[in-house]
């Protein structure tokens, strides 16, 4: 199978280049990550992140034939040859397929993604109805792979100012949690021309999310909450 892979090592390369690989795959190689591991057996200089190989850890996000996705759950049968693989767009490349995700995580951290509740804790669990708990479905499952934020033009232009779809999805995850008491502070934190409102509903995030989540919908809900509190 043929692959064309983005290569860049600041130690040795003046500029990035695409390198072609023709690789004999084994019958057990079913996912793109299997192929990349196979390539690395032949050329150990190819660098990429990977861990769980089942789509839950979020390590191996990359741009595959022009679209962001996770290598470990992308079936080789579903990709066109030559498979063109590049690092996630819009973030600085450290080496090969490894990008510097600091900006992405900084935005995630900026929404204070932890439960805030100053009421003294009960002896047992805080109660939450199944219906209220269901509000968190489609939100808490995010694996922070950055496929969404790095496919978002608004995030490409303003990665320092726009929280981006992944961070906003988590902002809403806590706004939607009946146990959280910081709604007003959370909305204040997003009330700004950039942090939330740079989302123009382009919906690339929804299109690429490997977990089938919908950040645009969550962003819409936050905007609704903003409007509601002003009237």
């Amino acid at each position: 199978m043929r692959f064309s892979i983005y290569r860049y090592n600041p130690d040795t390369d003046a500029a990035p280049r695409m390198q072609d690989y023709d690789i004999q795959l084994e019958p057990t190689d079913r996912m793109l990550l299997d192929a990349l591991v196979r390539i690395k057996e032949h050329d150990d200089t190819l660098s990429l992140r990977r861990s769980c190989r089942e789509g839950v850890c979020g390590s191996d996000a990359m741009n595959i034939n022009g679209r962001n996705g996770l290598a470990c759950i992308t079936k080789l049968a579903d990709v066109k040859e030559p498979v063109v693989i590049r690092p996630l767009p819009g973030l600085p490349v450290i080496r090969d397929l490894i990008v510097d995700m600091s900006q992405f995580f900084k935005q995630y951290h900026s929404v204070k993604p932890y439960l805030q509740n100053d009421t003294p804790e009960p002896e047992k669990e805080r109660l939450q109805s199944p219906a209220d708990r269901e509000e968190l479905n489609g939100l808490y499952e995010c694996i922070l792979c950055a496929c969404c934020s790095t496919s978002c033009p608004s995030f490409w232009w303003n990665p320092d100012k726009f929280v981006g779809p992944a961070g906003l999805l988590q902002a809403y995850r806590f706004l939607a949690d009946t146990r959280d008491e910081a709604t007003s502070e959370r909305l204040d934190n997003l009330e700004d021309p950039y942090r939330l409102f740079r989302c123009h509903s382009i919906m690339n995030c929804v299109d690429v999310c490997p977990k089938g989540l919908n950040p645009t919908r969550a962003i819409g809900k936050i905007k609704e909450m903003m409007i509601k509190r002003t009237v």
Partner: peptide, 14 residues
């Protein structure tokens, strides 16, 4: 749970 873990719930909220 107090840290915010999104456990599934029983009908009575536990």
């Amino acid at each position: 749970e107090h840290f915010g873990m999104p456990f599934d719930r029983t009908p009575d909220g536990k």
